[in-house]
């Protein structure tokens, strides 16, 4: 498809373990994101969702390595380009919003300067004055009150929500077409989360931004994204439009995850957990979810299922015994 802004093909990331060997943490992962589209990458801790996001920008920890695959963005393979060329992409054509805004900001630099710094780094000769003015404009755009005074503050003088707005302002400062967000609201209170998600939605509409949102929270995806990819043990196990996946999940893990989230709509009803735990990195064949899956059989434990679209309508799931399409087992 020519209108894809970002396409990840067959990405495989390995990590060096404590024992010295390399274990795969992301297996054969493919995803695509059209211009202006919002994709939610959902999974629990250890599913490889954050590693995937980091691999796209080649910001893996020292133990991590892209072992195979392509990351196609604007005609370049980010997995192969020189480090020098990546710099124009990171924070330039791709903006990033991290989970912990306090860690993402330099504690000894005024917050306004940090936005101006991004503008100057990617702005091809913007003067200090111009950068300053544009930083103030960005701060107003992310609805920070009293931008002039706020410009001169240090990160520790701001609230968590204000800090995340500064991080978002820096992320959009260089006019990116794609925003990567790693659990952007997990560290925030629920009322602040709501404001930040609303802000992200507004900026997307105004700037025509595409969004790759990594989160563990299905409700955040529901509220923010067009499509969702569910990750388990380093693989995408189900992928499709949000409405379709949430209304009629086809993978048993997705259904379990939907059932595990407590709901305000049904007071007194306990969510059902998924017994067992997600396995660590393993190269063993078979479906990684099989040990926790009610429908697993011999084939599940021996043959790795591939992400495949059903013969009829419905979205793809990597499961040998997918739940029937159309029969709503989910919540929505």
């Amino acid at each position: 498809m020519s209108d894809d802004l970002l396409e990840v093909r067959g990405l495989r990331v390995t990590m060096r373990g404590a024992a010295g060997g390399r274990a795969p943490v992301v297996h054969d992962l493919s995803l695509r994101l059209a211009a202006g589209e919002a994709l939610g990458l959902v999974g629990e801790s250890g599913s490889g969702k954050t590693t995937t996001l980091r691999a796209i920008l080649r910001l893996l920890p020292a133990a991590g390595r892209i072992a195979a695959g392509q990351v196609l963005f604007a005609g370049q393979d980010l997995a192969r380009v020189r480090e020098r060329d990546l710099r124009a992409v990171r924070g330039g054509r791709i903006g990033v919003v991290w989970q912990d805004p306090l860690a993402a900001l330099d504690p000894l630099m005024r917050v306004g300067e940090q936005i101006a710094e991004v503008i100057r780094a990617h702005g091809r000769g913007a003067s200090r004055r111009e950068a300053h003015q544009r930083a103030l404009g960005l701060m107003r755009q992310v609805e920070l009150p009293g931008a002039e005074a706020m410009f001169r503050r240090y990160p520790h003088e701001l609230s968590g929500g204000q800090r995340q707005r500064i991080v978002i302002a820096s992320a959009i400062a260089a006019g990116p077409r794609l925003l990567l967000a790693d659990e952007p609201t997990t560290a925030l209170d629920v009322t602040i989360q709501d404001q930040i998600l609303t802000l992200l939605a507004r900026l997307r509409a105004e700037l025509g931004l595409a969004l790759l949102l990594v989160t563990h929270d299905l409700a955040v995806v529901w509220q923010t994204c067009d499509r969702v990819a569910v990750m388990y043990a380093g693989r995408i196990v189900e992928e499709g439009p949000v409405a379709s996946v949430f209304a009629a999940p086809r993978h048993h893990y997705t259904r379990g995850l939907l059932g595990a989230a407590p709901s305000l709509e049904m007071p007194g009803v306990l969510p059902r957990g998924i017994p067992g735990t997600q396995p660590g990195p393993t190269g063993a064949p078979g479906c990684a979810f099989a040990p926790r899956c009610p429908a697993s059989d011999h084939k599940c434990r021996t043959v790795t299922p591939v992400l495949a679209a059903p013969s009829g309508d419905g979205h793809p799931a990597a499961c040998h015994h997918p739940l029937p399409t159309g029969l709503g087992a989910g919540r929505a």
Binding site: E44, V190, D217, L257, A260, P262, P271, G273
Partner: peptide, 28 residues
């Protein structure tokens, strides 16, 4: 994680019922 959270909530509810425990659950 969400799937683990559900299991722990089930456990707390179960203990409260079987042991007659009063539970003060503090959460956001």
């Amino acid at each position: 994680d969400v799937s683990v959270q559900a299991v722990i909530l089930e456990l707390l509810a179960h203990l409260r019922e079987t042991l007659g425990l009063a539970l003060l659950l503090i959460t956001h």
